[in-house]
Design a protein around this nucleic acid. Structure first.
Lengths: 211, 211
DNA sequence: GTCTATAGTAAGATAGAC
DNA sequence: GTCTATCTTACTATAGAC
């Protein structure tokens, strides 16, 4: 067998997806361990034990505990964003064109994801993560608004950034409450209320200075 | 000299306020070190060096790095709350009785404090603190709403808690933006806008379920 | 790619003299 | 109350065999 074949085994060989499988096992174990104990209290040993893997493998594939945590978060984010942009696209197809309504459609999908993956939603909003994680979240939040809401043609003034930050934080706080809900029905009530608050904020657009 | 006198020296002796002075020096040093490096990156050694004190004293007076951080936060909170309740009391004396307006008066004072002590405001909102700190902040935030806003006669339903949480997070996010402002004038613009958003949210009271 | 065993490291915490 | 010196502890991270 040549070296090239060894590195990239033929489809159908028993090794197919070995890397993917290991990474998946580690991510799944990380989800269970981190959501149960939080980031700080979880040790690498806990994760690899549950994944039936090894410390070396974890470092090989992810580079460390922090990076594993962040990889888990990125998966979660990808799921959020996929759902949100699909919802926005569907609304557009259905003829919705009002920016606030499109935003509401995306936000609703986002909040729905918070319920469906409430363990992760609570983990990532608990404020327990690797150094710099809060900053990463903040950047992502701003990007999310700017993406879903390029419609609102926000400028880069401090007042427009405030508007985006306030909307983001309301949706984020809503997601936290949704994730903490005890039943699906209660979560739905909360989702409706959050959308209502977002509408109130958007009804008159960004606040303008009157001085 | 009796033992009792040694423990509680007469007023006017050179030892007057020795404890208070040490604690102040440690708190002042903590403020400088933590606001500059954050909690995780700051070491106890940095703090005691700047305070011209010692590791042992720090442990004697505060119990550890985490407790010192929390003590600093509590001072900050006390300043906030004093200003806010004074503002509410002044508004009442001036004849204001609308709950939303009273809330706005308190919130304005709060946001003003965020500008005045912006180094601390940024530190405590950066998401870098001892284990469990985010939870403490959250509890305090809920308490704050319930205090300033017992007026709104909120029940303990999940929707009323959401209402309080959303208002809290808008004020908190506003405080963060205020603290990050570059000039007093810009901070004032932001403060006005935040109050405006709070008013929009409060205008129709807590969202009610329509199902 | 996987694994074990080991080393490094750094800082928080404590003991005990003064 | 204050201080110095020491400890201990737990983990991350790496080296190197398979």
């Amino acid at each position: 067998m040549t070296e090239a074949q060894a590195r990239k085994p033929a489809v159908g060989s028993w090794q197919w997806g070995r890397t993917a499988q290991t990474q998946r096992a580690l991510l799944d174990a990380a989800r269970e361990v981190f959501t149960r104990q939080g980031f700080a209290d979880a040790s690498i040993a806990d994760v690899v034990e549950r994944a039936q893997s090894s410390v070396g493998s974890l470092y090989h594939h992810f580079g460390g505990k922090s990076e594993l945590f962040i990889a888990l978060w990125q998966e979660h984010q990808a799921a959020y964003e996929e759902a949100a942009s699909a919802a926005v696209a569907a609304a557009k197809r259905a003829g919705v064109s009002d920016p606030a309504e499109l935003f509401a459609a995306g936000a609703r999908a986002y909040l729905d994801g918070a319920w469906q993956r409430r363990d992760l939603a609570m983990l990532f909003s608990a404020g327990d993560g690797p150094p710099g994680f809060e900053l990463m979240k903040r950047h992502r939040g701003h990007g999310w608004i700017r993406q879903n809401d390029a419609l609102l043609r926000l400028a880069d003034t401090s007042l427009d950034r405030l508007y985006a930050a306030v909307l983001t934080s309301v949706i984020g706080e809503g997601a936290r409450e949704v994730a903490a809900a005890r039943t699906r029905a209660q979560a739905d009530e909360i989702i409706d209320a959050v959308i209502e608050y977002a509408r109130r904020l958007m009804a008159e657009g960004p606040a303008r200075t009157h001085r």
